[in-house]
């Protein structure tokens, strides 16, 4: 399943997608949990009883701002959450 957390507003589209099929048997011990400097990821058991990660509810409506520190307008380094997730389950839409 592709779970998209975030929103679209007048200023743009801000979704973090998690490919839960790649996430279920995480080979790197949920490195995203500590990889994100703001601790935006958490584990949960989804509706189909699989343990996967999701974006915490409190961050879902604020991604453009909460992710801003990792996205300087120039010379952008690789995103820590994406780097931490070697199975490439995490994608940002912006």
């Amino acid at each position: 399943m592709i779970a998209n957390y975030g929103y679209k507003d007048g200023s743009g589209e801000y979704y973090i997608s998690i490919d839960t099929d790649k996430c279920i048997d995480c080979p790197v011990g949920r490195a995203c949990l500590t990889g994100c400097p703001k601790g935006m990821f958490e584990t949960m058991t989804d509706d189909y009883d699989d343990e996967v990660v999701q974006i915490k509810q409190s961050f879902r409506r604020n991604l453009a701002y909460d992710c801003a520190d990792c996205k300087p307008s120039s010379n952008r380094p690789p995103l820590p959450c994406v780097v931490a997730c070697t199975p490439a389950a995490i994608k940002h839409s912006w």
Binding site: M1, I2, A3, N4, G6, D9, G10, Y48, R60
Partner: peptide, 14 residues
């Protein structure tokens, strides 16, 4: 009826 992809938008009233 199993979800394969989803998104939700409850941030913006548009």
């Amino acid at each position: 009826g199993k979800v394969t992809n989803f998104l939700m938008n409850d941030k913006c009233a548009a």
